[in-house]
């Protein structure tokens, strides 16, 4: 019982005054808005098919699978998007990468994304460690059968080809094979991912990539751009 008392907050209903009880001020306020729209000449209706909406830059539409600089699919089939997906709309079958892809162990043999089941939350994009899957601005998705909207790897790559030059859908990042940490050529000086006590021996060594004791700042070697 005591626990419940703690978690409950009692709110008193505010006292209603005389004018409020007559409802006249509320009615007048409402009529004022109506009159404003009646006399104003400003158009608020969008003539949709002729006039396309101006979508915000973070709009989440149809997905695309990005290609890397050699035009291969960027996806490494880690299936983190499928894990993150709350609608379970992504199905990936992985396979060992072809022999002439020396920088990869694994690639997606098939990649299926059910655009009808998808809720366009963007979690796949966020989960992707290589920025292979992105949501574009394409919103007018239509099809005549369910199969048409079951997007395969080829279809998703096509979306990329269509949208790669669209300024509204920039290829947002240029990350490497497995995220920034895997690029050994330009390994950035790393800040601590976890908190390190200032008494930690490592925190007292004045080499790059170590937090300065007490401040928590990263001494940047300049490699991270």
């Amino acid at each position: 019982m005591a626990k419940r008392e703690k978690s409950v907050m009692y709110v008193e209903e505010p006292e209603i005054g005389f004018w409020e009880a007559t409802f006249v001020p509320a009615i007048v306020e409402g009529l004022r808005t109506t009159m404003k729209h009646l006399v104003s000449r400003e158009t608020v209706t969008e003539q949709y098919p002729e006039q396309k909406p101006d979508l915000p830059l973070h709009y989440r539409g149809v997905h695309r699978l990005n290609r890397d600089e050699k035009d291969r699919v960027k996806c490494v089939a880690c299936m983190l998007c499928a894990t993150a997906c709350p609608a379970h709309c992504i199905t990936i079958e992985a396979a060992p990468a072809p022999k002439d892809w020396p920088d990869r162990d694994k690639f997606p043999q098939t990649f299926e994304l059910d655009e009808l089941r998808c809720i366009y939350c963007g979690m796949c994009e966020e989960a992707c460690p290589v920025d292979a899957i992105e949501l574009t601005h394409i919103y007018d998705l239509t099809g005549q059968t369910r199969d048409e909207l079951l997007y395969t790897k080829d279809k998703l790559l096509n979306v990329f080809d269509k949208t790669r030059d669209n300024p509204r859908d920039p290829v947002r990042t240029g990350r490497g094979v497995l995220g920034p940490a895997s690029e050994f050529q330009a390994l950035p000086t790393l800040g601590p991912a976890t908190q390190v006590a200032t008494s930690d021996r490592s925190a007292k060594i004045g080499t790059a990539g170590v937090i300065e004791s007490g401040t928590g700042n990263v001494t940047d070697g300049g490699a991270r751009s």
Partner: peptide
């Protein structure tokens, strides 16, 4: 138990599979 970051500045020594 890990430190959470590495202080390695050199390239990793990656051996072929």
């Amino acid at each position: 138990y890990g430190r959470g970051y590495s202080r390695l500045q050199e390239e990793k020594n990656i051996k072929p599979d």
